[in-house]
């Protein structure tokens, strides 16, 4: 039997996935982020399309719940772009699960994505996908068996931008105004 014969099937129905996402609104509502039923269905369908595109199969629990939970309290997400952002995030998630050759758990990848999204990318998904995650994937492939610390070191070695921090900011302000 070929696995492609099973890719149309799932142990979790679309209806249940949508229902589970709607239930998350109770928590995300605190941050003024809610998905309508129509939006939840769109998100589930996007996710399924992404899975097919990246040739992955998900038989049970969906990643969408964890994705919502990981990003709902980000200052860079608002209601108007909530669906669009989640759609892009799940695409990036599956792309980089493949790029990291499944050497990293869902939780670790989501954790990294959230951290970079807020602290480095300031909500810029293109930057997250094109730079941070690309480097992260290289670091994972190079040093998965090693500790988190080593992986971070390898990530930093691949980093070429000067990061904004307080000292950099002050020195630029001084140059401009003094």
């Amino acid at each position: 039997m070929e696995i492609k014969d099973l890719t149309g099937l799932s142990l979790v129905t679309k209806k249940k996935e949508v229902h589970d996402l709607m239930e998350r609104n109770a928590d995300t509502g605190r941050f003024q982020l809610v998905l309508s039923e129509k939006e939840a269905l769109q998100l589930v369908e996007s996710k399924n399309q992404t899975l097919r595109m990246y040739k992955r199969i998900e038989l049970g629990e969906s990643i969408l719940g964890s994705l919502v939970e990981a990003f709902c309290d980000s200052q860079y997400i608002n209601q108007s772009s909530y669906l669009e952002t989640l759609t892009e995030l799940q695409e990036l998630f599956y792309l980089y699960k493949n790029e990291c050759m499944d050497q990293i758990s869902d939780e670790e990848l989501l954790c990294f994505m959230r951290e970079q999204y807020d602290e480095i990318c300031c909500g810029d998904l293109d930057y997250l996908g094109g730079t941070c995650l690309a480097r992260f994937a290289e670091a994972v492939k190079a040093g998965w068996k090693e500790s988190d610390e080593t992986r971070r070191e390898k990530y930093e070695k691949l980093s070429t931008e000067k990061r904004w921090d307080k000292d950099v900011y002050l020195s630029v302000v001084k140059e401009l105004f003094w």
Partner: peptide
């Protein structure tokens, strides 16, 4: 499918919700 789901979860130590084809 049910059995495959169980095997996949054990294989990935319950750390991933999806695997490649």
């Amino acid at each position: 499918l049910e059995l495959l789901n169980q095997v996949i979860h054990k294989n990935v130590s319950y750390e991933s919700t999806s695997v490649t084809y």
